[in-house]
């Protein structure tokens, strides 16, 4: 890898500060816990889906900026760790329109059980936990 050309400090301008909340994806979104509307943990933010150009596609001047369309979870975590890209059919999407807030956690405006992201939880609940006596009682 060639050594990067330095951008000299005097070439760095003061940033225009957008109105509204600013989020840096790595710092404020990726790997954060996702809670549903009742505060039940659903998953973590493993990747983020954007609208806009396909990878490596030339961007015409004046093209509108991409938007966050969904938070992604599931097998995409494995590819983040080990590289590669999961087929898009294997991605579990949480649409951005169900997101209610972003703070130290990402909160959703919907219930966990209504999301694809919780299918393993629901499967284990009905097929394993519910079959063991006491599984659906409060601890005493």
């Amino acid at each position: 890898m060639s050594k990067a050309k330095r951008v000299q400090p005097q070439e760095i301008h003061a940033a225009p500060y957008p109105a509204g909340k600013v989020l840096d994806a790595q710092l404020h979104l990726l790997d954060r816990q996702v809670l549903d509307v009742d505060g039940v943990p659903v998953t973590t933010v493993d990747d983020i889906e954007l609208s806009g150009p396909e990878p490596n596609e030339k961007i015409p001047k004046g093209a509108p900026a991409p938007q966050i369309t969904a938070l992604l979870t599931g097998p995409v975590l494995g590819t983040r760790i080990f590289g590669g890209r999961p087929p898009s059919s294997r991605l579990i999407r949480i649409p951005w329109k169900s997101v209610a807030g972003v703070d130290t956690v990402v909160t959703l405006g919907v219930r966990a059980d209504s999301l694809d992201a919780s299918w393993v939880e629901r499967w284990l609940r009905t097929h394993v936990i519910a079959r063991i006596p006491g599984g659906s009682h409060e601890p005493e």
């Binding site: 990067a4 050309k5 951008v7 957008p18 509204g20 909340k21 600013v22 989020l23 790595q26 710092l27």
Partner: peptide, 13 residues
């Protein structure tokens, strides 16, 4: 080459 993408910044409008 100038470096690597270390983060992507978003704004909530």
């Amino acid at each position: 080459r100038l470096g690597e993408v270390s983060d992507v910044r978003f704004a909530l409008d």
